[in-house]
Design a protein around this nucleic acid. Structure first.
Length: 577
DNA sequence: ACGCCTTTGAAGAAA
DNA sequence: TTTCTTCAAAGGCGT
């Protein structure tokens, strides 16, 4: 059983945090040389090419060890499809990148994400935290506009529009802030969730201080300005909140949030009764609609009879009644998803490509090319997302969403895939093939493709600060220890001080010791027994100073070197149960 | 109209 | 305990 630090879940931050990094020599060096160096697609391409070559030359076992192996259907590997290339071909005009030089992609770094949380020492209760982060930032001119959840859904929102997702209205960074503004209307927060945020520790109500919030939205005009963002309208203007309402009004997926008092009534307005079943799923106890919630009627299968015709169109005949009735609560986004959300627009803007498959391949490469600290930010964000999600939807389980998507031809694939295939497929998976040499985006750094591909750097293994916790248990124990997905072989880094008994122990250790992994993160290579750090190590508990970009970075570098030859550090978070 | 593709990560189920 | 499967976002493409 996961250990709860504070019993309440407030101590999540305290528990969690261990940071470990996994290393790849090349990547490390590169990072050290130029942490912020931009990797371009060209590099990716080159790296890919190299990878392919290398793969063929190097032993499979070796490769397997060094590379993360994406879990994919073996089939895909058998017949790798180069979406990237294909997409490029389709794009006959305009070349891949708009800019030949491909300036790179300045990361819209989320300001020190850790600050808000770390400052408190632990993550505040989800609701509070969430509010803290979101509400203050929402600038809704005339909050009334959106806040009146009772008003009919905005015309631009059709019934079919998923309640949760409005990518175009989300600031690039917002995704990182998960259920953010999208979900909360700028209006006055619910009374129970009022801006008067209780201090997690003291319980004393307090208004979020700008300083606390700012870190999350450091989008200084200059920083952001560097990159013309497709979502520019969301970009905060100087002195103004990031989330200004679009001319047409604020399209908030969850107008209901704008309401103070009667959330339920609001909710009902936003969600039809059948759409919004009351607890456990539809709304959190707090009554806060969550972006993750998608009404079945809207997104999933239509409700029987009561739903709008459009909704019906989607539903296949006999639908599970119960499921339909339940709102669809989406899974919290993981670090990579958050990253993708943020960077997709940028990549699309840089490239003429629009196909997600191709874009995702690029993003995958970029992800690997990110420095640990950069990735750590996303892991941390993801961790917080999970925490928040779990707090908002205590009873929710990822399993709830199983089967909602149409099953793929798994069975057939499985049949096709024999043991051999699996084996071979794994090896093959190491390489992502999507970059045709000739059509790559030009990039200055194309010469060092290898770096991108850090052969061995499984993203997972990369510093992933986030503590993966079981969703359910997360409430109780945000940071649970879990073994790393096996599909991606990784190097395991022994964690010092930690009994290798099992991954589960890590959670306890983390909880018990305030900074077990911190030391790792900081670069103190601790040699621990065996537990592999397969998952991101949450470092929320770390002192802000340590988390400061500079310090953290340095630490990371240190750890990097120290670990350079050691195997990637994986974070183990598992419930002791 | 709907599913696939593609990526990584998290979580749960199955072995 | 390990392995495998599903889902999360996204949007063009194919059926």
């Amino acid at each position: 059983m996961p250990q709860l630090n504070g019993g309440g879940g407030d101590d999540l931050g305290a528990n969690d945090e261990m940071i470990s990094f996994k290393d790849e020599g090349e990547q490390e060096e590169k990072i050290s040389e130029n942490v912020s160096a931009e990797r371009d697609l060209d590099d990716v391409k080159s790296s890919l090419v190299n990878e392919s070559e290398n793969n063929s030359s190097s032993s499979d076992s070796e490769q397997a060890e060094r590379r993360p192996q994406p879990r994919q259907d073996s089939e895909s590997y058998e017949k790798p499809r180069d979406y990237f290339t294909e997409a490029l071909r389709r794009q006959q005009d305009g070349g891949f990148f708009k800019s030949p030089s491909y300036p790179g992609y300045p990361f819209l770094m989320i300001p020190d994400l850790t600050n808000p949380y770390l400052s408190n020492g632990s993550l505040s209760p989800s609701a509070r935290t969430y509010l803290q982060m979101k509400w203050p930032l929402l600038d809704v001119p005339g909050t009334a506009g959106l806040k009146d959840s009772r008003s009919p859904t905005p015309g631009h929102l059709s019934n079919k529009v998923p309640v949760v997702q409005h990518p175009h209205h989300v600031h690039p960074l917002t995704p990182l802030i998960t259920y953010s503004n999208e979900h909360f209307s700028p209006g006055t927060p619910p009374s129970h969730l009022s801006p008067e945020i209780l201090d997690p520790k003291t319980g004393i109500p307090r208004a979020p201080h700008p300083s606390e919030l700012s870190p999350y939205y450091p989008l200084s005009p200059g920083a952001v300005g560097q990159i013309p963002h497709p979502l520019g309208w969301l970009v905060p203007q100087q002195g103004q909140p990031m989330y200004s309402l679009p001319p047409g009004g604020f399209r908030h997926p969850y107008p209901a949030l704008a309401m103070n008092a009667s959330m339920s009534s609001l909710v009902s307005s936003r969600f039809s009764p059948h759409m919004v079943p009351h607890p456990p799923h539809s709304l959190h106890q707090t009554g806060i609609p969550h972006p993750a919630i998608v009404s079945p009627a809207i997104k999933q299968e239509p409700n029987h009879g009561t739903v709008s015709p459009t909704a019906h169109s989607k539903s296949p005949g006999p639908v599970k009644k119960e499921e339909d009735k339940k709102p669809h609560i989406k899974k919290p986004l993981n670090a990579f998803m958050l990253y993708m959300k943020e960077m997709r627009a940028k990549v699309v803007a840089e490239c003429t490509l629009k196909e997600s498959a191709a874009i995702n391949q690029i993003l995958g490469r970029r992800w690997h090319s990110l420095s640990r600290e950069e990735q750590a930010k996303y892991y941390e964000l993801a961790r917080k997302e999970r925490q928040l999600h779990s707090q908002l939807y205590p009873g929710w389980s990822a399993r709830d969403n199983y089967g909602k998507r149409k099953k793929r031809k798994r069975e057939s694939k499985q049949q096709e895939t024999t043991a051999e295939d699996n084996f071979s497929s794994r090896n093959k998976k190491q390489c992502v093939q999507y970059l045709p040499p000739e059509k790559m985006c030009d990039s200055p750094a194309s010469s060092h493709g290898s770096m991108l591909d850090s052969p061995a750097t499984p993203s997972a293994a990369l510093a992933s600060p986030a503590a993966p916790a079981a969703t359910h248990s997360e409430q109780a124990q945000p940071l649970s220890l879990t073994t790393k997905p096996e599909g991606r072989p990784q190097h395991h880094f022994p964690i010092p001080g930690k009994p290798s008994s099992s991954a589960s122990s890590s959670s306890s250790s983390s909880s018990s010791s305030t900074q077990p992994s911190v030391s790792l993160a900081l670069g103190s290579p601790v040699s621990q027994s065996s537990p592999l750090l397969s998952r991101p190590i949450p470092f929320t508990s770390l002192p802000p100073s340590m988390l400061s970009p500079t310090t953290f970075h340095q630490a990371a570098l240190h750890s990097h070197h120290a670990l350079l030859q050691s195997q990637p550090l994986a974070l183990v978070t598992k419930s002791t149960d």
